[in-house]
Design a binder for these strands. Structure first.
Lengths: 207, 207
DNA sequence: AGTTTCGGTGTACGACCGTACACCCAAATC
DNA sequence: GATTTGGGTGTACGGTCGTACACCGAAACT
């Protein structure tokens, strides 16, 4: 085993996080025991405390990690340029599908713990989604046609879009990466986004 | 204690279901122990088996009960008539808010267990939501303006609306019944539904 | 009236849980 | 080279878990 002491510690910490993420995929965070994680990692139960004060703190670290995936998704979405709405939508859905595929465990974790997790975990996740809605609202304000929208309406549209994306992500998770349903779900998400954009563009004029 | 033996048994069964629903509101179904439930009901742990073969079967019974609430919501929504779209939307959101208020525990249970519950529970819940989408699609087909929509597009719109309602319900749950946020969430839901309807009405003509 | 049925009781077992405590030993520090 | 540091070990404790088993007593049945 190579490496200095701090490298070794970091490696064990990572192993604990990975084991916890793997184990929490079947079942849930509340049903995760310190001893299960320790056994999976290959250390004795008490050694766990060298890295985390409690299982709850492990859970919180897992949320941070999963929210990192979410934030990278948002970053990638913002960079998804396109000449028209249609290509922006297509690109965004592609990004979503790809991200859910490559960070499947993280998004499954978020979906699971958003409502079922411990209170601090739930709050952290909902704060992350709230941030996504607020950032999207800012982006929407820079789009043509939303010049004289109220801030409230901007946020309502933003949360509508984010909700739809979250639902799509959840569907993608339960469908499983690479499944035949994946393409169907992606196609439906594109259509839904188009409908929403059309509705939004007509909004002020018919209000 | 009045009542025949079958009445008494039914009363205890109800007490078990109520206790389980109450206990599962903090934490989750997987973190629910037979002994906790028995203690809450006031019976000895082994007496539990006189009513359910296992905790999982209790969970399944709880899902059925919660899905009954969901079905009653759908029934009520279908009866929400109105002369125009605006009044149908307003009435529907009122029904949703009222249902989530009066059956708070059931909808919290559904939100929690939809992704975090045991596999049979998850499947039952998603089947219930799928049914809602299909029924809404049928209703949408009877509305003016959707004459020449494809079946697929009908279902895409239907799932968009249902997703939005589910998200609204989840928001209402976490906001808590009677909270100041409730009115804000309801108002946002109305706006979202209006945007979706506008988008849908323009759909074919711009496709 | 005698018998059966059955919801609820009480005890008991082994498995797993979190965690306190004393200990070991190699890397890091001096 | 002597000392300190700290990740990992092994044992041990009290608590909770699901569940098997024998038993009780009143309602239900014959």
């Amino acid at each position: 085993m190579t490496g200095s002491r701090v490298e070794q510690k970091e490696r064990t910490r990572r192993a604990i996080l990975d084991a916890a993420l793997t184990l929490s995929q079947e079942s849930a965070l509340v049903a995760l025991s310190l001893r299960q994680v320790a056994k999976e990692v290959g250390i004795v139960p008490t050694a766990f405390y060298r890295h985390f004060p409690s299982i709850d703190d492990l859970g919180l670290a897992l949320v941070e990690e999963s929210l990192d995936s979410l934030r990278s998704l948002l970053r990638e979405l913002r960079q998804t340029a396109g000449s028209d709405f249609a290509s922006i939508i297509d690109g965004s859905v592609d990004v979503l599908v790809h991200q859910v595929r490559t960070h499947h465990a993280h998004y499954l974790f978020i979906a699971r713990e958003r409502f079922a997790g411990p209170a601090p975990v739930r709050e952290a996740i909902n704060a992350g989604i709230g941030t996504a809605e607020r950032e999207l609202a800012i982006d929407l304000a820079h789009l043509p046609g939303t010049d004289q929208w109220s801030e409230k309406d901007l946020h309502v549209l933003s949360s509508l879009i984010v909700d739809s994306m979250v639902s799509t992500a959840e569907r993608l998770i339960t469908a499983g990466p690479g499944s035949p349903a994946e393409q169907r779900i992606a196609a439906a998400a594109r259509t839904q986004l188009r409908m929403m954009v059309i509705g939004a563009m007509q909004w002020r004029s018919s209000d």
